[in-house]
Design a protein around this nucleic acid. Structure first.
Lengths: 207, 207
DNA sequence: ATACAGTTTAACCATTTGGTCAAAATTAGG
DNA sequence: CCTAATTTTGACCAAATGGTTAAACTGTAT
């Protein structure tokens, strides 16, 4: 029955996503995934032959969630300031929905950087798009026009992404040290950071 | 022989540090640590009773490496701009020496946030010092004096630390996407970032 | 009804893994 | 030297873990 199949596969992926993202590849247990999906452990291996294959699927899905929007925004026709503001808005919202993905991706990539190569092979689009080159050209053009200060594009991108991602990835430590481990307070902190980060970046690069 | 003992303990801790920081608590294997230390696995349990205890030791040492300098700088008598520049210089240097620690700490803290509580209990100094309150007072005083723009201290601290730590933690992905996986180029990138980040932050908050 | 393909399960298996233990080796002290 | 304490090791163990298999179940088409 094709409907039941789809349903089982989805249940597995949902459960796998939870467990892998919380415990990582090495900490995840196939039994726990099966339990959380409400199925027999053998069924996991029926749909995804090995732990590695299941992990790969979960990782690719997680990784993909953050790519399309980035391409859309960076390749749009907006001026740089608008792009940055749009980027911050969209990604902070996305992070609210998927707060575990960045830590998960970063951690697994540190464990095995090779994963990235596989992703590039399967999704040439990312590299082939010349995403960086086009954005860089726009930045330098606006520098030339005197709209923004001279700046290295890679440094700017690292800053924008870092200021967005870091407080989510390092949440336990920042929340623990600066917010007395108050979850609600930290959620509010993340929310107000949207405008703060926008201003912080624009302030720094505007002429 | 008390000297041999010290030596064995050091060899164990060195090996454990390498393995734990690269593979994490769940990915590390006691056998691998023993091999790397050049000793029998049973000897690990002779010195540190369990994997958990050994991990705890390694984690605490790693965590401690980044604390003293932070306290020293933040509680010093310099004006804010100088503190920030000093902070960036010192921590980027520290990160060059210990590039794996932040990812390790962040990852393990995501796995088990409880670890922080234990650290606070054993090292009350960190919380008791009113480190944050004092720094906040200085910031707001300089805001009042018109030296820096009005700014929330927690946001500022998050930015400073994030801009320093993020490119190290997310190295595999940034290096892979923006630097064609060229290690040397990325090392150069990190080096030149020191001054870039300083300028970026000062630019943004100066009146 | 029957046969057939796809799905699900319980029971198993081999290996890995953290941990133990008793004996051997080494060291320190009288 | 000899003895007692400390350190180190090889052999071993029980539990956990990823993975397999054969049988049972389910829905469907003939």
């Amino acid at each position: 029955m094709v409907n039941q199949q789809k349903d089982t596969e989805t249940k597995i992926l949902d459960a796998a996503k939870d467990v892998f993202q919380q415990k990582g590849m090495t900490g995840a247990r196939m039994q726990e995934i099966a339990d959380k999906a409400g199925i027999n452990k053998a069924l996991l291996h029926y749909y995804y032959r090995t732990k590695e294959k299941l992990f790969e699927k979960v990782f690719n899905i997680a990784f993909s969630i953050f790519i399309p929007k980035m391409q859309e925004i960076m390749l749009s026709e907006k001026p740089v300031f608008e792009k940055i503001e749009f980027f911050i808005d969209n990604y902070m919202d996305l992070l609210t929905k998927h707060p575990y993905i960045p830590g998960f991706v970063i951690n697994e990539l540190n464990r095995n950087p090779q994963i990235l190569v596989n992703i590039f092979e399967k999704n040439i689009q990312i590299k082939e798009n010349k995403l960086f080159e086009k954005f860089d050209a726009q930045i330098q053009a606006e520098v030339q026009k005197g709209i923004i200060k001279p700046i290295d594009t890679r440094n700017l991108m690292t800053n924008v992404i870092g200021l967005i991602v870091f407080p989510v990835v390092a949440r336990p430590i920042i929340q623990g040290i600066m917010f007395d481990n108050d979850k609600k307070q930290y959620d509010a902190f993340l929310k107000q950071r949207k405008d703060f980060v926008k201003e912080f970046i624009i302030n720094s690069i505007k002429v």
